[in-house]
């Protein structure tokens, strides 16, 4: 083969790779991560998103609040949150849902809208409940990955949630739980984690996006640059969605003095909310 054909061939290969990359940006990166335990990419560290998916995983403009009531010239922040002012408002974001909108069944979409209208009473984050997967990944809190040859454990700052990634599938989880049962394996440089056995009580965000206890999540963690991982999660839940759908986002590794997980055990922070009415002398 003459050199000119080689070049053409390479160019068309590059085009193909480029096209493939548009569909699946993570898998086709040429980046080779430093090796860690067992020759796999070293994903140790404190990771966090830099997005607003926890407010709403779908594209959304900034808005005044998460809870509203009708006002004389349109909705205004609900009484319960109005005192928060700008602190209670929602930052904009392009969302993390691929090929949206989220493919709800009509009934499930109605539930989502109802959830949104009753956000204050229903969002499990307000009561400091464990976040479930994938919400744990993109809450505005860091989480730390501890990776050895034998084990990978995730510790989330929010609510002190933890996940142990099992590398031997023990079979179906004997009982549903908030963080589910995680079974992992490596596909090349991608850590793939199948999460099953989650209950129906977690949400995807503060926008009322929900699921049933049938939800299965397959997560993919792929290093794409120094200190950056692509996170993809496919969600299958026929009771709620008409087809499997995916979210994807970037995780960033904190460095230096920022890379120390703090404690956010919020259970005590919600005691007045949850038990205040049961005080001997309820506060006026």
């Amino acid at each position: 083969m003459k050199p000119i054909y080689v070049l053409v061939g390479l160019a068309s290969l590059a085009t193909l790779v480029g096209m493939a990359a548009q569909g699946a940006p993570a898998a086709t990166q040429a980046y080779v991560a430093p090796r860690g335990a067992g020759g796999h990419p070293d994903i140790n560290g404190v990771w966090e998103v830099m997005n607003t998916a926890n407010w709403d995983i779908e594209p959304h403009a900034a808005r005044a609040a998460l809870a509203f009531r009708p006002g004389p010239f349109g909705p205004v922040p609900a009484k319960e949150v109005v005192a928060l002012g700008a602190v209670g408002s929602v930052p904009a974001g392009l969302g993390i849902v691929e090929n949206g909108p989220i493919p709800y069944t009509p009934e499930a979409l109605a539930v989502k809208k109802d959830n949104q209208a009753h956000w204050l009473e229903r969002d499990p984050e307000i009561k400091c409940y464990l976040p479930g997967v994938p919400r744990a990944t993109y809450m505005p809190f860091p989480f730390q990955i501890f990776q050895s040859t034998e084990a990978i454990v995730f510790a989330y700052e929010y609510a002190g949630a933890v996940r142990n990634i099992l590398f031997k599938d023990p079979g179906p989880a004997p009982v549903d739980s908030w963080m589910g049962q995680s079974v992992g394996h490596w596909e090349g440089d991608t850590l793939v984690v199948a999460v099953t056995g989650q209950n129906d009580s977690t949400w995807f965000d503060r926008a009322g996006n929900h699921h049933s206890a049938d939800k299965k999540v397959v997560e993919r963690y792929t290093p794409t640059a120094a200190g950056v991982m692509r996170y993809e999660a496919e969600i299958t839940d026929p009771a709620t969605f008409t087809r499997p759908w995916k979210i994807s986002l970037n995780l960033y590794r904190r460095a230096g003095q920022d890379a120390q997980l703090q404690q956010f055990k919020c259970v005590e922070f919600v005691e007045e909310l949850m038990y205040g009415r049961l005080r001997k002398e309820p506060l006026k």
């Binding site: 335990a37 140790n44 464990l130 730390q144 501890f146 990776q147 050895s148 034998e150 084990a151 990978i152 454990v153 510790a155 002190g160 949630a161 933890v162 142990n164 963080m179 120390q260 997980l261």
Partner: peptide
């Protein structure tokens, strides 16, 4: 208790209540 070690850390996951003692 589950102990997992990574460079620079020993972490103890305490069953009750799902607490990670992160030892630097």
């Amino acid at each position: 208790y589950q102990i997992v070690q990574s460079p620079g850390y020993v972490t103890i996951v305490v069953e009750m209540n799902h607490d990670a003692r992160i030892i630097r």
